[in-house]
Every structure is written in structure tokens, then in C-alpha cells.
Design a protein around this nucleic acid. Structure first.
Lengths: 213, 213
DNA sequence: GCGGCCATGATTGTCAACAATCATTATGAA
DNA sequence: TTCATAATGATTGTTGACAATCATGGCCGC
């Protein structure tokens, strides 16, 4: 594995883990030490993350971690809403019996996690469910974009996942999505997925209003 | 304007104009002469276009113009369908009187262009209409992605725009979109836009079947 | 003749030094 | 004091040279 890949991965993780805060400047020389690679590779890593929307570079002014405002987070999630809707519809059209069982399995685990109050576990299952649906759909174009967008708002989503009461709201939504896909009902799957993510958007907005208070 | 910007723009245009065909290799040294810039800038340009999905780079093997298969073109257009649907809905929610008039104006010009058989002009108006709608919506996230995707299939769209009989099909679809936005009916606008682009997808598939014959 | 193997040229990857630019502070005159 | 300005240090932009890798073609053994 090349230094460039190493540097990119390390920097990406560092940003996603919050070691560099939004708005914080990324000085190339510092990153060289931090990542243990040459400046050449640091620059390449920055460029790549810039393409992913994680950092912003201004000519002659260097790079800084991109700040995602609440409005932008909402926009991004709106896009995710329609894309995951598309993906869910396609998953419904292509799902196999084995995959349907897998979906059920995750649904069951989700119910258990919620009733046991295991938020972290529920959050993991949430990722797994969305990931499995995308896998079933096999829509690489939508998939790539969704993945990129997810990266851009890990911070917001992280905060959201700890929001008390969220699981109680999203669990039935997830169950509806699973059922629609199992029934191979593309339109219902799309609608259910959109309704689910629309409620995420609402929660995002509420959270903002709460913070602003 | 920096050499890097110049190189990127020149290379992008060269690819979009078809001077480099899909699959064709992009040799850095050659591009240096072709674009009149240093290798450093050529590499930067290639990286940027790779982020846009116009070229693909393989480690130690250089860059080549990305080939977009019909299946990929369909996928890309499906994504555009849902994104432009989102944008249309938002445009309907935000349109002003002045903007509504502008939409009507374009609709009128489109009708005229079609009845006069001016395909090229109709195609231009088509771009203008979609652009105006995106402007009204002001959804920068969706906008950026749509723009990127459009770049990836200029070749396919170009072929499609010359398809005889296309305008007759798409004109009424465009008119429905305009009307829905004018009436501030977000759902109708989204549905109309999706129906329109769904028909583009169908045309893409037909074209493929036609070529394969 | 034919398939594997090495030499060679072509091409990309990487580096370290240098140039250009920006941000900060010191300086001086009104 | 305060504003404009210039020096200075920090940071990024760019270059050319060199290293690593790949692809091509010739060569040898079979």
C-alpha cells in the first residue's frame, strides 16, 4: 500500500474522529510529521479529501476542515433522502429470498436492541441495514454518492444518534422499509425510506433549534 | 488565472468535445505540450477531472478517459432523475412571480423552436430551462452533483438530443414541469420532472437496443 | 516455431530545493 | 493615536531531477 493511500486514510480518519475540528487549518508541514509521510503525499491526501468534500482548499491559503452548517446538513440529507429512496426501490425490485431473510434478521436485532436500550448497538445495526439495502440494490452510482455524503456529516449524525427518543421513532420506520422490500413493492419501499430520512431531517432541524436556544 | 485552472479547463473541454475518446490514454508528457503547461499542472488537472469522474487513473498506469457504458449512463440518469425531482419540488416552493414569467418565456420559445424544427435551439433551451429551475431551487448540494453527473454523459446526451422525434415527446413534459412550478405545486413538479427524465432513460435504453441490432 | 525471460525505453511516482504568496508585526508620518 | 506601509517569517506553489514501475520487443532454450 502506497504512502499516499496511507496518508489519505489516516487523515480521513483523523478528521472523522474529530481530531481536527471543523474550520481548523491543515498545515502541510504539520501533517507531514503527524502522518509520517512526505509533503508530496500530504498534498495528494488533501486533494483527495477535498474531492470528497471533507476539506476545502483555497489557493495560496491552504486547506481547512470543511464546516457543514445545519442548512448544508439538511441539504445533504435531502439529497440522501431521494437517493436512498431510489436505492430502496431498486432493492425491492431485486431482493432475493436469502437477502430478505437477512433484512428480517436485522429488523429483529434492532427491535431487541431498542427494547434493551442499547443505543450504540442500534446505531450499528442502522448502518448495517442501510448498507445491506444498498448492497441489494447494486446501484454503484447512487451508492458512491451516498457514501461521500455520509462522510460529510458524520459529526451531525453522531450527535443525532445519541439523541434520546430517536430509536423509538425510527424503529417502526425501519420496519416499514424492510417489509416493503420483502414484499418487492418498489414504490412502498421508496416512500418508506423517504419518510424515514425526512424524519431525520426534521430531527436535525429540531436539534438546531434546541442548540440555538 | 493560474496555469492549473487553465490546464483543467482546457483538458475538460478537450474531453467533452471528443478530442480524446473514451478509453484513450492520457499521457502526461503529451498533455504538457498540448496544453502548454508543466507536468505538475497536468497532473493536477488529471486529478481534478478524476474527481469529476471524467477520467480514471490507475496507479502506475496513468489516466484514461472514462468509458461510460449504457448501463452506467442509465444509472447516472436515474440519479439525476431523483435529484432533479427534488430540485423541481423545491423550485415550486420558492419560485417568484418574475421567475415564473421567465419559465413561461422559455416554454414559449421551446414550442416555437419545435414547430420550426430548430433542434439545436431546442436543445439549448432545454439546458436553459433545467438550469433556471436549479437556480430557482437554490439547492447547491443537489446542483453540484447534477452538474458533475451531466459532465459524465455528455456524449450520450449529445447523441440523444439529435434523436429525431425526441422534442415532440419532451416538449409536453417540459410544459407540465413549468406549469407545476408556476402553480407552486411541489409534488406535481417533482412527479413531472421524474416522468420527464424517466422518458430520457427509456430513450437511452432504446438507443442502445437500436445500436446493438 | 513457440513460449518464457530479460533488456530497454517509455511513463508515472516521488522528492527536495526554490519561488511566490500570504499573514503578522514593526515602523513611521500625519 | 491611527492609518498606511514595509520588512519578515510562515506557508503554499512549482520546478526539474531522479527513482520506480510498466510495456514493448528481442533473445534464448526447447
Amino acid at each position: 500500500m502506497s504512502d499516499q493511500t496511507i496518508a489519505t486514510d489516516k487523515l480521513r480518519i483523523a478528521i472523522l474522529e474529530g481530531e481536527y475540528l471543523p474550520g481548523e487549518r491543515l498545515v502541510e508541514a504539520q501533517l507531514c510529521e503527524r502522518l509520517g509521510v512526505s509533503r508530496f503525499n500530504v498534498r495528494a491526501a488533501i486533494q483527495e479529501l477535498a474531492a470528497d468534500g471533507l476539506v476545502k482548499v483555497e489557493r495560496n491559503k491552504g486547506a481547512h476542515v470543511r464546516k457543514v452548517s445545519i442548512d448544508e446538513a439538511v441539504e445533504i440529507t435531502e439529497v440522501r433522502m431521494v437517493l436512498e429512496g431510489l436505492v430502496a426501490a431498486r432493492a425491492a425490485a431485486r431482493v432475493t429470498e436469502a437477502q430478505a431473510s437477512e433484512l428480517d434478521e436485522i429488523g429483529l436485532l434492532m427491535r431487541r436492541a431498542v427494547s434493551a436500550g442499547e443505543f450504540r448497538r442500534y446505531s450499528d445495526l442502522n448502518s448495517r441495514l442501510h448498507g445491506l439495502i444498498r448492497g441489494i440494490a447494486g446501484h454503484s452510482t447512487a451508492d458512491g454518492i451516498i457514501e461521500t455524503l455520509r462522510g460529510q456529516l458524520v459529526r451531525h449524525q453522531f450527535v443525532l444518534s445519541l439523541h434520546p427518543g430517536r430509536p423509538a421513532i425510527s424503529l417502526p420506520q425501519h420496519e416499514r422499509i424492510i417489509e416493503a422490500i420483502r414484499l418487492r413493492d418498489a414504490k412502498a419501499a421508496e416512500d418508506a425510506m423517504r419518510a424515514h430520512i425526512a424524519s431525520v431531517i426534521e430531527a436535525l432541524r429540531d436539534m438546531d433549534a434546541g442548540e440555538a436556544r
